[in-house]
């Protein structure tokens, strides 16, 4: 079943983009009943030049997509623990199997609640607990790309800084020290908070990958920094127009470029 979430208008692809080949890349965006940023993820894929396919949590078929995004939200309400129930969704079984096959396996990105789902599904280590402020936090957050070698970060440079929105209640990344050391040692810390740790995450970690680099999860929202006029007020690349920050677009162009080879 293809989910037809009614979009308001149709997102415009990036004007004058050069690489028409990206058109053929199909990125699946998973919708759970409580997904919130799914339409934003669809828009981000299209703005990056790809095609988005909406996937329904209850389906058993990945529809042959080339990559998958698990967006933010509250999947099944998250009253138990964020992502705890979602990992058992029929579609998650397909995703988990397809993502676990080494460097050529299905690229999977989990944003916010999607990151929480990936940790619950054991595609990524660690877990998220309540922010140390105990409040929901919505703010523009500066991050450093620590590893530009993953499927989702190759359009950035190692050490490059970006500004994208952070918005969550349970965003504090925790793991035991051995896991943290392992993540650091293997270069699997993909994003780190800079200019202040917003939520108490261990070692300022904002996002990580699996060892193959095809599965990446992060708490901040790159899909909300892809379109000038509707993103953050700032960019790590210098002055931008009001709400002109598009530093998150690289996440989506990275995977598209990787997939067209």
């Amino acid at each position: 079943m293809t989910l037809e979430t009614p979009l308001i208008g149709g997102p415009q692809p990036v004007a004058g983009r050069e690489d028409r080949a990206l058109d053929g890349v199909r990125v699946g965006v998973v919708t759970f009943p409580g997904s919130l940023d799914d339409r934003d993820a669809v828009r981000a894929v299209r703005l990056a030049g790809g095609s988005a396919t909406q996937l329904w949590h209850g389906d058993h078929d990945l529809q042959g997509v080339d990559a998958v995004i698990i967006p933010g939200g509250f999947s099944y309400g998250d009253y138990l623990r964020a992502g705890a129930i979602s990992r058992f969704a029929p579609l998650m079984e397909q995703i988990t199997a397809a993502a676990s096959g080494g460097a050529d396996a299905l690229p999977v990105l989990g944003v916010c609640n999607g990151f929480q789902v990936l940790t619950e599904a054991h595609l990524l280590p660690g877990s998220m607990i309540k922010n140390n402020s105990l409040h929901f936090i919505c703010r523009d957050q500066r991050l450093r790309v620590e590893n530009a070698g993953t499927s989702w970060t190759s359009d950035y440079a190692d050490g490059e800084e970006i500004v994208i929105p952070l918005k969550n209640q349970d965003g504090q990344f925790v793991a035991d020290n051995r896991t943290l050391d392992e993540l650091e040692g293997e270069g699997r810390v993909v994003f780190r908070y800079v200019d202040g740790n917003p939520n108490g995450s261990r070692r300022d970690i904002a996002g990580i990958s699996n060892s193959a680099g095809n599965v990446v999860g992060l708490m901040p929202h790159p899909e909300h920094a892809v379109e000038a006029g509707f993103g953050p007020d700032s960019s790590a690349r210098g002055a931008v127009e009001v709400r002109g920050g598009t530093d998150g677009l690289g996440i989506f162009t990275s995977v598209l470029k990787k997939l067209v080879g």
């Binding site: 940023d37 934003d40 929901f136 379109e227």
Partner: peptide, 23 residues
Amino acid sequence: DQFDRYVQGNTALAMPDDAGVVR
């Protein structure tokens, strides 16, 4: 800052601007 002003991707202005603007 305890409210999500980004979701849906159509927010053109929000606090502290004079009005909230949504596409």
